[in-house]
Amino acid sequence: MIYVSSFKLSPFIDRNPNAYPDRVFKHMAGEVLLFERITVFYGNNGSGKSSLLNIIANKLGIKGNERMASYGENKYAERFMEYCSFELGEDEREHKLAGLPDKSLYLKSEDILYEIKKIQQQAVLREGLLFEQAKQGANRAELAQYEGSFELYKKLDIVSYAQEKYSNGETSMQLFEDHLLPGSFYLLDEPETSLSPANQIKLAEQMNELARYFDCQFIIATHSPFMLGTLHAKIYNLDAKPLRTAQWYELDNVRFFQQFFQKHQQLFE
């Protein structure tokens, strides 16, 4: 399922060289990104792939978006997003979709790291569990009662045991199992964080299945050669000027790995 078919970047770029995010996307001004079931934004550090995901998340109003930074009174980021636009996809009857699935989510690498850290630190974990209760509508009296309850201590024990049993990478995989559900739209920023190459490939294969068989759509920012080489994706190379699509084996980061192992090939023979 294609929930979002395209996204047009702002054609207006401020002349101020320090304006953010204008200065990051000046070589992409007015570009229209066409999305597949899985679309990847590739680029090295500073290429704007994370900023682009956040702009899309803000424009679409997806849970997990972060407010764009602004400087001075001109509010460059808000203006940039105002000039951006998008098109939703169509259903099986070729009718334009009215909106995105309710479970749509923007999940960042720091979100995963925070969840791992929350599990590792009892105090932070306790606050997180109390916060979850508050989000579900618990008032102060109910929160106070929950804080001293057997239910909370049991939950703390269960999660703490899980952390002792599983590594950061295994915890990350479990978090993806919990968050990635059929029939939804996901923006993922560097999902390979904390994952071994084998688990990166496993996660990419799961995304392929979710996209092909379970009506999910993914837009992913990554420079992992293992993710890039496994995902059945359309890849935008944000390092290219002008912006263009590419095959995974053409990308600089992938070729860097290839050259590194070629240099040491004799050690493997």
Score class of each variant (00 low, 15 high):
195 L>F: 08
138 A>P: 05
20 Y>N: 05
112 I>N: 00
181 L>C: 03
182 P>M: 11
73 E>K: 06
41 F>D: 00
164 E>V: 10
151 E>C: 07
108 K>H: 10
230 T>R: 08
3 Y>V: 09
238 L>M: 13
195 L>M: 05
96 K>S: 15
118 K>H: 11
55 I>Q: 01
220 I>W: 03
188 L>F: 13
41 F>S: 00
22 D>I: 02
140 R>D: 05
104 S>R: 07
180 L>R: 01
176 F>A: 01
148 G>M: 03
28 M>T: 11
241 K>Q: 12
203 L>W: 02
10 S>R: 04
129 L>Y: 11
269 E>A: 09
73 E>T: 12
171 T>R: 01
204 A>T: 14
149 S>K: 06
218 F>S: 03
264 H>P: 06
265 Q>T: 09
187 L>I: 13
86 F>G: 01
75 K>H: 11
51 S>V: 13
164 E>S: 08
252 D>L: 04
23 R>P: 03
11 P>Y: 09
19 A>M: 02
138 A>R: 05
252 D>R: 01
72 G>A: 02
235 I>M: 06
170 E>Y: 06
222 T>L: 04
269 E>N: 08
28 M>K: 03
235 I>D: 02
22 D>E: 14
70 S>I: 08
77 A>R: 00
117 K>S: 07
48 G>A: 02
232 H>S: 06
198 A>Y: 11
167 S>P: 08
167 S>L: 07
118 K>S: 13
8 K>C: 13
